[in-house]
Amino acid sequence: MTISRHRPFRRRLSGRPLVRLPAVLLLAAVAGCSSTDASAPVAVPSPSADEAALCRALHKELPKTVSDLGRADPEPSSELTAGWGDAAIVLRCGVPRPEGMSDARSDAVEANGVNWMLEERDSGPRFTTTYRETYVEVTMDKRFTHDSTPLAELAAPVKKTIPSSL
């Protein structure tokens, strides 16, 4: 897995967190006290017909598991969205270009040949592909704040189906 950051970055993302087992135990304890709703609605993008065709191709190539989390697609069902692990990881294809891409100070990550713009949020990181013919957005919950493994696992299907715009 190749992961690198671009721009003046404050920290480096690693493939796996250093203290994964305690984090998993803590997560299991918290999960018993909270409810996550895999069917929580996710906004379905409205890309152009050409971009939607790329997204449908991507949908067919997406893995059944990401970071050991099983596929659990959000509602409403769409070939433009996918999810893993009760909305722990949600992918939306054909999203509009994020405003942050115009900021030369935006953080970026490269994972297995795919560039992603990073947006840090309280609920967890959001990544959007850069230099692709349509934008693919991946949101992750807090447990992935320092774990870029999902991006590395999603890179091959993105490279295969969403051509570079460079």
Rank of each mutant, 00 (worst) to 15 (best):
R16A: 09
P17Q: 09
P63E: 02
S35M: 11
T36Y: 10
H59M: 00
S67R: 03
R71L: 09
D50H: 09
L26Q: 06
R71P: 01
P17M: 12
A40R: 15
P63C: 07
K60P: 00
R56L: 06
E51T: 06
C33Y: 10
A31V: 12
A43N: 06
R16L: 15
E51H: 07
T36N: 08
R16K: 14
L26S: 04
T36A: 14
S34A: 15
D68S: 15
H59D: 09
L26T: 11
A31K: 08
D68G: 12
P17S: 11
K60N: 02
E51F: 02
L69Y: 05
L54K: 04
S67D: 10
P45Y: 01
T65F: 03
A23I: 11
V44M: 06
S67I: 02
T36C: 09
D37T: 12
V42A: 11
R56E: 08
P17D: 05
L27S: 14
R56Q: 11
V66Q: 03
L18G: 10
G70Y: 08
V66N: 01
V19H: 10
A31Y: 08
P45H: 02
A40K: 09
D68C: 03
D37Q: 10
L62P: 01
A28D: 05
A57W: 00
G70M: 10
S48L: 04
P17R: 14
S46T: 15
A28E: 08
L58A: 06
C33G: 10
S48G: 10
V19S: 07
L58T: 11
V42S: 03
A49R: 12
A23F: 05
S46K: 15
L58E: 04
G70T: 07
V19N: 12
L69W: 04
S67G: 01
C33E: 05
S67W: 05
V44L: 07
P47H: 04
L18R: 13
L69C: 05
G70L: 14
V19C: 06
S35T: 15
L27H: 08
L27R: 14
P41V: 09
L58W: 05
L54D: 01
